[in-house]
Design a protein around this nucleic acid. Sequence first.
DNA 1: TGGTTCATTCGATGATCGACGAACATCGAA
DNA 2: TTCGATGTTCGTCGATCATCGAATGAACCA
Lengths: 109, 109
Amino acid sequence: MVPRGTSRGREHPPLSEVDLITVLSALAEPTRMRIVRMLAEFDGERAWKDIELPIAQSTLSHHLKILRNAGVVQNRTEGTRCFVSLRDQDLDGRFPGLLETVLGCSDPQ
Amino acid sequence: MVPRGTSRGREHPPLSEVDLITVLSALAEPTRMRIVRMLAEFDGERAWKDIELPIAQSTLSHHLKILRNAGVVQNRTEGTRCFVSLRDQDLDGRFPGLLETVLGCSDPQ
DNA sequence: TGGTTCATTCGATGATCGACGAACATCGAA
DNA sequence: TTCGATGTTCGTCGATCATCGAATGAACCA
């Protein structure tokens, strides 16, 4: 058990331990899909604070944790700040073409 | 409202009305993924009764309904029998490469 | 006309999920 | 050391989901 509030989350599992269902589940939610598309558009990392969505901070943190656990996203800390980016290389190694194909699919409506 | 037990389900939405989240949600469940893989291996339709999984009939019917609504699968009736097949052509038209890419990803474990 | 098989629907149950506010840990700055 | 900013975790709520057994209806057969 990890002490409360102490870990700063940030577990980045090796993709060999991630299965397809986990990735699809992570992507199969509108808010998380928005986040992934946003990161893909930036083609780089984005500051946590700049991920502006109409949800509470705690909810955003929750979604990012799910994306992290699915190997889709990674966090990097710099001082008190946090930057988020896609793990597109790693992901493509484990599930070739998956992220690219999904992102190539037409936007929700 | 459809009268009880009378419709035989079988709604096959045009894929233009299906969005990506719906398809990913349909695929992001182990039992449904097994069904889709099973159908893909057969490369043709499979009799309902031959979809042997350790779940109740009603549960299988439920999963097939979700796959139908997501445009992933279609049903065909012949007498009292029912045959299930992938809508891979239609699906590929709407979400190019998606099904193929997902099926190309390694099996669960 | 019943009886059988087949698939769907109903209704209930327990589990999971997304959402929020509050509390908390961490780090840099005052 | 105290303070403010930044993300995470906790606890909780309501909604959705997977599952089952039972009831229902549809098509065929005897």
